[in-house]
Design a protein around this nucleic acid. Structure first.
Lengths: 123, 123
DNA sequence: GTAAGAGCTAACATCGATGTCAGGTTCAAG
DNA sequence: CTTGAACCTGACATCGATGTTAGCTCTTAC
């Protein structure tokens, strides 16, 4: 599929998709005219890339990580090196802490929202 | 307490603390010589500020939010306006989605890590 | 063949919290 | 009084994903 469709289906801008390809996160064939032709499974991949970005990983780390992930198709095409595993374990712990913080913050927001609703029954 | 101690106790750089004050997120008295003198409760407040930053809120929104939060001392000193509540509700939903994504990403990392440990019992 | 819509590259801009540095002032202990 | 640590302000730098624009090319339907 061409870049426009992939953008539409993932909600990610064309700009970002080109950037992902440039960073080695996505692979695309090219038409004879030089336009990108993404495989169907790029959709899932883009979504996972977005999630990893949201989790605070940088593109370089994602690039090392992706080949070690189980694909839609089957097993991973590479096994993570010990060094990468260490790295990912650290990220994992960071994400864990981040989840805790987010849950806290969500609670704070809920409290403020609820307090306001109680004191301001503008219905 | 002075800025160095607050930085040490919160793990937040002095630079950031000055920035927080400048953005209206923190209040500090001044010594006759012009040095900041933070109240004890600044410690908790800084930690909450950090969490809100981690949740993706910007300083301006945090500045509007903070006076509506329940303090260590007691009730909020302001009630959120309807407009702010709408805003916060949107942030809340965004945080919710972010948590989901983080949990997903954590799962992905765990899988890669586990796969590597199984295939590479370097112990 | 032509026109319109979609894609291409390259370059520059942005955002916001934080790092860093310079040059000066304050504080506290001796 | 002196000295070194801690603090002050102000300015500039950074990082990285993404937005934006310009100028050109490809694709496709007519």
């Amino acid at each position: 599929m061409r870049i426009g469709e992939l953008a539409r289906r993932t909600g990610v801008s064309e700009r970002s998709l080109r950037y992902y390809e440039q960073q080695g996160l996505l692979t695309a064939d090219r038409t004879p005219g030089g336009q990108r032709d993404f495989p169907e499974r790029a959709v899932d991949r883009v979504i996972r890339i977005q999630e990893l970005f949201a989790a605070g990983l940088h593109s370089k780390k994602i690039a090392r990580l992706l080949p070690c992930m189980r694909d839609a198709d089957g097993g991973p095409s590479e096994i993570a090196t010990a060094q990468l595993v260490d790295d990912l374990a650290a990220e994992r712990d960071r994400i864990d802490r981040m989840i805790t913080e987010l849950v806290n913050s969500r609670g704070v927001l809920d409290e403020v929202i609820n307090t306001a609703s109680e004191n301001r029954p503008d219905r």
